[in-house]
Design a protein around this nucleic acid. Structure first.
Lengths: 171, 171
DNA sequence: GCGGAATAGTAAAGCCTTCAACTACGCTAG
DNA sequence: CTAGCGTAGTTGAAGGCTTTACTATTCCGC
């Protein structure tokens, strides 16, 4: 087999000994671990998002915005702070908040301290929508993630996630 | 605080004892594990995809199509088989293959055995593009994932991923 | 205060994905 | 053989996300 390519192996097998600027290809084990993570995370995100949309009409991205606002005293956040907490670009958040505004779940308010800023504020209707969606989402997270794993696996998952977060989102 | 909402806690705290059709809220530990997984996986997908696009102009979704084709004898697959392996809908794959065709990396060919079917075939140019991109991508997977984790964590990650896959993609 | 740089947020264009038809072909019962 | 159904794949419209550019406001050094 001289024509296999994957994340683990080069399209053309690497030389026996790695050369000076030879890329470090993945071992069999690394490959299997990486692909298992890749596919399982894609499938899980997809599943949770679809469940939530089907049963509540709220995508996970929008749900996250509502959650972040609800967790804040005053149920409001500056647009950029909200974007950061939602792992969203400012532009993306701006679009998303516009749509949530149309639904009457969030409203914008000019920021008192900084005339440039906008405050996204969760409305009562938005809070009610979140109250309705939260149990559905939690159930879905349980069914497809937590119920599938042993307590040790859940601990390990947290450990791995936190390790990666320190690298990917320092501070 | 009676107004916090997250994936773990209800918008209004649940009653002390869970009622009959009371949702099962997440414990503190479950919540932390779930959120760590959620954010780290979002950030990692995003990071790997951006690295690949920036350095090669190929998104991870397109890269995966090329990989799957390259791993097949004959460097070709039926459209629906390819869609399944890429965790993609048929429509999505159809659009994507159209773009890859424009780049000259894939071509379509009617299937001999089944007149309804199409075969996606990797071209030599497509294979060359993959050869160029693979080392970049592998390096990125190493830097942001494998190098961050201990051997035990990598083993645990694989174990968790495979467990979830059995649930999410049975068979 | 004032001119320039930096920051907050929005808007527009283009690509990607989804959803819902729609075409074309194959399979099977009568 | 042919009607009807199921399967393979594509298409087009709608909406979301990214990128880039733009406006408005604030900050800072003088």
């Amino acid at each position: 087999m001289t024509t296999d390519v994957s994340a683990a192996e080069p399209p053309v097998p690497a030389c026996p000994g790695p050369g000076p600027d030879e890329a470090r290809w993945l071992s069999e084990d690394e490959q299997l671990a990486w692909r298992a993570w890749l596919f399982s995370s894609l499938l899980l995100h997809d599943r949770l998002d679809r469940d939530l949309i089907r049963e509540t009409g709220i995508s996970h991205a929008y749900y996250e915005i509502l959650v972040q606002l609800s967790e804040t005293p005053g149920h409001s956040l500056r647009m950029s702070e909200l974007a950061e907490r939602c792992l969203s670009s400012r532009s993306r958040l701006s679009h998303a908040v516009a749509r949530l505004e149309e639904r009457g779940w969030v409203r914008r308010q000019v920021c008192a301290e900084d005339g440039r800023g906008q405050l996204a504020v969760l409305t009562d209707e938005g809070f009610a929508a979140l109250e309705g969606a939260a149990p559905v989402h939690v159930e879905s997270v349980r069914t497809h993630l937590l119920d599938q794993l042993s307590p040790q696996q859940i601990t390990a998952m947290r450990d791995i996630g936190e390790t990666l977060l320190r690298h990917l989102a320092p501070r």
